[in-house]
Amino acid sequence: MYQAAQPTPEQRHAWRSAVTSLLSVDGNCSALTVPPALEEIYLFHAFPAGGSQKTYCVLIERSVDSKGWGSVIVPESKATVTYTLHLSAPHPHYDLGTVEQAAALFELVGAKSLLIAGRTRTALMEPSQCVIPKGSQPYYVTDPAHNNLEPFFDAALAIYEWQHAQSTGCPSSSCAFIQMHGKGRRTCPSDQVFMSSGLRNNSWYTSSTDYPIKRLKRNLQYALPPKWTISLPSDSKCGLTATTNVVGRYINGIPESKVCSSSPAPSQVTGEFIHIEQAPSSRSREVYELWARALRATFQPSTHFSDVPLALDPSMSMN
């Protein structure tokens, strides 16, 4: 059944092409057409955001009897993209609340794209042959963070390649690829939020370079409740460092053909990839706006939104 739901090589190519077309939309969502290999499975659809004047364009499966490849959403008008941020939720129905959180932040900050996986990581509990951990607990084939054959991986790469094909590329001052994850209360219990860029504890995190993840940590400390611990690998012994995350490996400079087996050296890591693990309280709707404030303060807005403040006012924090 899994193989029947997987895209063929032609469909994988078409899926990436459709994601690329979606990212280039500018007021013409209804005019987009999916490639022939996908026309019975996917469609482009424009829909208004509740309570706002914005309209979004989504690449979504036609049927509820879906293959589980996921969905990608962008603002239909480029003029409504405030920040060059690409948000994603790889583990729906498992990392509870992360899909809702990613969607809320996508809308609140005016991000460029939102990618949501279509399968829960435990949909098929067979070991992935891509990333094989040293311990006894395997990664499953339907875990898109650890299997390069999942459609989520193809969509993430299409988003990355599209961004880097733009004249501005992905400067660290204004651009990032952010994955939202959730951890259990007993996992790294001292950290409400634990972030990494796909590296374990390393001098990369403590160097003088102002990587996005460092700015985000500072701004989250201002924005979120004062008793919460916001950590990087240099602050915590938490092991959720995303070193085996296949999307993170690719963003960090590993060739697509080697993401299952190779990890980046610190010198390869640009900081574009931000992996966020969170306690349940950090994913609650009560702190969505606080997260949005921190993101706005961390990244420079698009040029047509130059009046957006670039630093978090401490008076707006919960401290």
Rank of each mutant, 00 (worst) to 15 (best):
S128Y: 08
S128T: 14
C130K: 10
V131F: 07
V131Y: 09
V131P: 06
I132V: 15
I132A: 07
P133W: 10
P133G: 14
G135W: 14
S136H: 12
S136L: 09
Q137N: 13
Q137C: 12
Q137A: 14
Y139I: 05
Y139L: 07
T142Q: 10
T142M: 11
T142E: 08
D143W: 12
P144D: 06
P144A: 08
A145K: 12
H146C: 13
N147P: 08
N147L: 09
N147I: 11
N148C: 14
N148P: 10
L149K: 09
L149D: 12
F152Q: 11
F152R: 12
F152E: 14
F153D: 05
D154T: 10
D154I: 06
A156W: 03
I159H: 03
I159W: 03
I159C: 01
E161V: 11
E161F: 10
Q163M: 03
H164Y: 13
A165P: 05
Q166T: 04
Q166K: 09
S167D: 15
S167H: 14
S167G: 09
T168G: 15
G169L: 03
G169R: 06
C170E: 04
S172D: 13
S172N: 13
S173Q: 15
S173I: 15
S174W: 01
S174H: 02
C175S: 06
A176L: 08
A176Q: 15
F177D: 07
F177T: 04
I178N: 05
M180Y: 11
H181V: 03
K183N: 03
K183R: 05
G184K: 07
R185H: 13
R185A: 13
R186W: 09
T187V: 12
T187W: 09
T187E: 13
C188R: 02
P189A: 04
P189E: 01
S190K: 02
S190N: 13
D191I: 02
D191V: 00
Q192I: 00
Q192V: 04
V193F: 01
F194T: 03
M195I: 11
S196R: 01
S197P: 04
S197H: 04
G198M: 02
G198F: 04
L199G: 00
R200P: 13
R200I: 12
N201L: 07
S203N: 13
W204D: 05
Y205R: 00
Y205Q: 02
Y205P: 03
S208D: 14
S208R: 13
T209E: 14
T209R: 12
Y211S: 05
Y211D: 03
P212H: 06
I213C: 07
I213Q: 05
K214L: 04
R215M: 00
R215F: 00
K217Q: 07
R218Q: 08
R218V: 02
N219K: 00
L220Y: 01
L220C: 05
Y222C: 00
L224E: 01
P225W: 02
P225T: 05
P226K: 00
K227R: 12
K227V: 10
T229K: 02
L232N: 02
L232P: 01
